[in-house]
Design a protein around this nucleic acid. Structure first.
Lengths: 230, 230
DNA sequence: ACTATTATTATGTGCATGCTTAATAGTATT
DNA sequence: AATACTATTAAGCATGCACATAATAATAGT
């Protein structure tokens, strides 16, 4: 009986799905499973690690392996550079800078970075277009003390989104999804009506504790984020 | 020089972050890296697998390992049972059934399941409360030919959300996030105003190709989905 | 009865070795 | 000369063993 680690994973998953193993149930230890499947303990370990990743089981040394008590839906979203998202969809990409100025950030921006009080940042507002139609409205605060080079970039030609992702990698990122009603200003730029529900993706990034940028990307009405979870 | 696989992973990630390895760049092969780090090839392989998971690098047999060309933000969200989400936040959970009837599904529901044409399903509308205030409005279509037991469940006592997650595991799940304006009916139940922007999470699940349920969970205004990506 | 130590047990990690896959070079055939 | 098949080989991938580590349970000492 020769089983690959992924077959073992699938079989355990099947037992969980078919309720042969109930939530909270303790699985046999790796050694026993290895004997059952006729393989080495390491192979079972591999399968189990994958199940830990997908949130199917929990493992603790000495405590053993148990089926996750409260099943959850674990989904993964990839957020690409906006230009690529548009071009991948087969649409023509367009971009223009709405405003660019250095000013003291509002408190909510500072607190999102975990900063005690507001500080001077570069505030950039821009619009991304798909097939000449507004697609994403980008309201961004850049901590230029962390990334001084950004001050020399001509943001009317290259989006801050793209420049930062390519030139200022981050170590930590907080993502926030929410819905809001479009303001007058946002609606105008997005060719929508004021009050229209818009989908907002907020991202705050740091490089080793140092704040880089916080962006509020507001999608035009109709935008959806889709993913297939296993 | 003894390095654990996670230290190797962190070091490679650092090189990518510090732009010592540019997007698209080819890394040395596992053998060479193993020599550099003074460890076995397998240990490098482990580190690399983790970097593949996080989307940092791509690997192809014979082709080698390359730094991901277009950096992306990969985020993972865990969507729990609504009751637990509320209780975990330290709030009192409440629930009531708004309506329950068997009827032919609209076409958009059928097409979400990948069904050619509409069919009879169980349609359930319910409200989840946090500290007696509306929290999530749940509009659900259940394929009762896949899960006939659901017809015998008293959904005024136990939410379909909970019963299904506990009793009808799924193998595939499609998740969709979007924003919309609350309808009159939705606004009333959520104690909001018609037209308020609400955050919508749509989930469609299957068990081995057989459709189970499609739920549209509409959160009360102010709801946010937050996660920390690495 | 409480605390410190030791034993046990289950998972985690590192290493050696052999397998699988895909790109490419080489060869034969049209 | 162009195509189609085959062999080579350079990568990553999978498996199994031995040992490390962590969490609990058992025991001994105060």
């Amino acid at each position: 009986m020769s089983n690959s680690w992924s077959e073992i994973r699938d079989e355990i998953k099947r037992r969980v799905l078919e309720r042969e193993l109930l939530p909270g149930a303790k699985l046999p230890n790796d050694q026993e499973l290895a004997e059952e499947f006729g393989c080495a303990r390491t192979t079972v370990q591999r399968a189990m690690q994958d199940l830990v990743h997908s949130g199917t089981v929990n493992r603790r040394r000495k405590g053993g392996t148990t089926v996750t008590l409260h099943p959850i839906t674990r989904t993964t979203f990839d957020i690409p550079i906006t230009r690529l998202e548009i071009q991948t969809a087969g649409k023509e990409y367009g971009y223009f800078l709405v405003s660019r100025e250095i000013r003291v950030s509002p408190t909510h921006v500072a607190s999102s970075f975990g900063l005690a009080k507001p500080m001077e940042m570069l505030h950039v507002v821009a619009l991304h277009l798909a097939d000449k139609k507004p697609y994403i409205y980008e309201d961004r605060w850049i901590v230029h003390s962390t990334t001084p080079e950004i001050l020399d970039i001509d943001l009317s030609r290259e989006s801050a989104n793209e420049w930062l992702i390519r030139n200022r990698p981050y170590s930590d990122c907080e993502v926030r999804f929410l819905a809001k009603n479009a303001t007058h200003h946002e609606a105008e730029l997005l060719s929508a009506d004021p009050g229209d529900a818009v989908f907002v993706m907020e991202r705050t990034t740091w490089i080793n504790k140092a704040p880089i940028t916080m962006v509020r990307a507001i999608a035009a009405p109709g935008y959806q984020l889709v993913t297939k979870a296993s």
